[in-house]
Amino acid sequence: MDMQHEGSHIARQTSDRAAAAAAAKKAEFLTFRLGAEEYGIDILRVQEIRSYEEPTRIANAPAFIKGVVNLRGVIVPVVDLRTKLGCEKVEYNGFTVVIVLNVHGRVVGAVVDSVSDVLELSSELIKPAPEMNTTVDTSFITGIASVGERMLILMDIEALMSSADMGLMDTSQSLQ
Rank of each mutant, 00 (worst) to 15 (best):
G167I: 08
V90C: 05
L125N: 07
L160A: 07
M3R: 05
A63L: 10
I10Q: 11
A21W: 10
D2A: 07
V107L: 15
G73P: 02
V68C: 09
H9N: 12
L85R: 02
R72D: 14
M155K: 02
I144T: 06
I99R: 05
A11P: 03
I58C: 07
A59R: 15
M169H: 08
A22S: 12
Q173E: 09
T14K: 09
V79S: 11
Q176F: 04
A11W: 05
T96W: 02
K89E: 13
Q4T: 06
A63P: 09
D165K: 14
H104K: 14
A36F: 00
K66E: 09
L121T: 02
P55I: 12
E158A: 04
S123N: 13
E91L: 07
M1I: 02
P55F: 13
L71Y: 11
E88F: 02
I58Y: 06
M151F: 11
H104T: 08
V111H: 06
F32L: 04
L85S: 03
K127D: 15
G35M: 02
M166L: 14
G7H: 12
L160T: 05
A110Q: 03
L71G: 09
N93S: 04
R33K: 06
K26L: 06
L168F: 01
L121M: 00
A19I: 04
L71M: 11
V111W: 00
F29W: 08
A21I: 12
G73S: 12
S174V: 08
G35L: 03
A27F: 01
A23V: 04
R17P: 02
T138S: 10
A21R: 14
L175F: 06
L85A: 02
A19S: 05
S8H: 12
V111T: 12
V107R: 10
E38K: 13
V90I: 10
L101E: 07
I141K: 09
D80K: 08
E48L: 06
A145P: 04
T171F: 07
T134F: 10
D165S: 13
